[in-house]
Design a protein around this nucleic acid. Structure first.
Lengths: 329, 329
DNA sequence: TATTTGTATGAAATCGTTTACAATTAAATG
DNA sequence: CATTTAATTGTAAACGATTTCATACAAATA
């Protein structure tokens, strides 16, 4: 309620001095510092961020764009972003785009409006052209999904290598008919994972069968279940599948359970992301772990560095194949 | 980049007039309006929220407090809050407290600092005393968990009735030895659900057995698995269990699977919350659905009304028992 | 035409900070 | 003691909007 001038009056100093005490930006006598701190306590003063932000023309707010809250894939990344940002005195605003251009525009406007300082986008459906445009004047970092043109710095993993590793694992277990449950290939990661899938087939002299590749635009459980339903209707049913996300894999697993197919004996299954549920299914799910938390840290670090005018470079982090029951023996 | 004065200059009017055009707060000649709009376009002007917020002394930012991002329970509620708030021109800041008092303080300070206008708290571990204190000067709404003293308005469901309904369902299926996997009873909802559990037992003349009540302070899958492990070690193993959250129930289910107990034939299981995963487990999980989205809407509505000086009343919404495979026949 | 009414606009204060610059005081030097 | 130097503090101008109040002008009335 009280403002800086009242505090100054109470302490018998100028508002400039109070400000100096608040930010210890230049030296202040111990005696005056005490007077000021006393006054602050007496008046129960809390500096207004509104005034400060206007003066400094920054909001210390970072936007984190995700397609929707309910996707557990993002949670650990967000934790990383949050921890790092808070550490540096920034807050994050989680923005659900719902892949809706209007929504997206709202968020872009927030940074134009100075309501937010920068953006970390994890939304693969985002309008890259507009984002590039925004990036000319504002700080932006891509996380997980990125732009091949590479004007905007990003943090990601090597999707192709990860997919290749998954396939190699399945092939070594003796599988020759391996399906790919992929998302829409308008997404870069989808194209990259498919590349890894195909490279492995080629290297091990296995045929590439078009009917074993299923692209879904529904990335939730239902999408996975539906994909598996289709695969199980094929003349020659595959003996294994690689789903590009755990949610898809869990949906597929549900369908396999329904159809009475034993996993892993009759059918092996691999997911991607290592969401916490992947260790709770029956059987537990083999999956690829991305260093989520680290990715979050890195993205936040890059964005804040960028805001402070430091040069930043894109980074590629390591992934790990986690073998569980769904691909045992 | 351009500010309101430059626009005014460009249009040959005063900044007051530009502001009037921006907010159409009082009448402006069609001719001047056109001039102004033209200038806005030419200069690519976007009004600064920082200036506006300072002047209006509001941030149009609402804080939503949750214990942690990874709990899927909250997602639908958040969607409701988000949708309603955005509709009314507010943004929401998702705040993960991690049940950490320091974090909590940071968020409280944000509203004292005018960086946020109000709070919707869904964190059962929150410091109620401090929150009450804050509520004297600021707008606050509780969602899902609330305070019996009832100074702060809340939106919730009738937990006791819901628990009672679950128990009645299990008892009708012929179960007599029913365990309760509860969370820590320092939480109001935990006490209320236990009350419902006990009332049902009493009404159906079943004994209340202390060893059938397991309190966990670990609300994730692990907590549920551990609880079930303990229950399966009892001399007289229960034939059914009611877990106060789906995550607990899914952990318990995992443990039952591991031990080779068939669900529902050897053991019936009920959860709470109807998170999306509850329909993907094998078998699918009987659970209690809260009107999550509606709760979010209601909470946001109450908070914004409060901010605008309108009087608000607490509300109690309806729940629903969703019967699935885990309690079939 | 003189007067009243109403509408459209502008000048300037305001919101609460920070900070460049000026001014004061204290300490150090010759 | 006079003078230079350094350390503290104060004054006042930003930051970018909104809004009260006053004023100018047009239209309506007598």
């Amino acid at each position: 309620m009280a403002n800086i001038h009242e505090v100054a009056k109470q302490a018998g100093v100028s508002s400039a001095t109070v400000s100096r005490v608040l930010n210890n930006t230049s030296s202040v006598t111990e005696k005056t510092r005490q007077k000021v701190e006393q006054a602050i306590k007496e008046l129960n003063y809390e500096p207004s961020m509104l005034g400060r932000n206007l003066r400094n023309s920054e909001s210390r707010l970072l936007l984190v764009l995700i397609p929707n809250f309910s996707n557990p894939y993002y949670t650990e990344i967000i934790n990383g972003i949050e921890d790092f940002s808070v550490e540096r005195g920034y807050n994050i605003l989680l923005c659900e785009t719902d892949s809706n251009p209007t929504r997206e525009n709202t968020f872009f406007n927030m940074v134009k409006n100075k309501l937010a300082d920068g953006i970390i986008s994890m939304d693969p459906t985002i309008n890259m052209a507009k984002l590039q445009e925004l990036a000319k004047k504002h700080s932006i970092v891509l996380c997980s999904e990125y732009d091949e043109l590479e004007r905007i710095p990003y943090v990601a993993i090597d999707n192709e290598a990860a997919a290749y590793k998954v396939m190699k694992h399945l092939i070594r277990l003796g599988h020759e008919n391996i399906a790919l449950i992929n998302s829409d290939e308008k997404f870069l990661y989808a194209r990259q994972r498919r590349k890894g899938y195909e490279r492995a087939l080629k290297e091990f002299d296995l045929p590439l069968r078009k009917e074993y590749i299923y692209n879904t635009n529904n990335l939730d459980f239902q999408g996975g279940a539906q994909a598996m339903r289709k695969l199980l209707q094929l003349d020659e049913i595959p003996t294994a599948a690689f789903a590009v996300s755990d949610t898809l894999a869990i949906g597929a697993l549900k369908e396999l359970n329904v159809k009475g197919m034993d996993v892993p004996d009759a059918f092996a299954l691999v997911g991607f992301d290592n969401i916490s549920f992947s260790n709770m299914t029956n059987p537990t799910l083999t999956t690829v772990a991305q260093p989520m938390y680290q990715m979050g840290i890195a993205a936040a670090n890059m964005l804040i560095d960028q805001l402070q005018g430091k040069p930043v470079d894109s980074v590629m982090l390591e992934h790990e194949l986690i073998i569980r029951e769904s691909t045992l023996n």
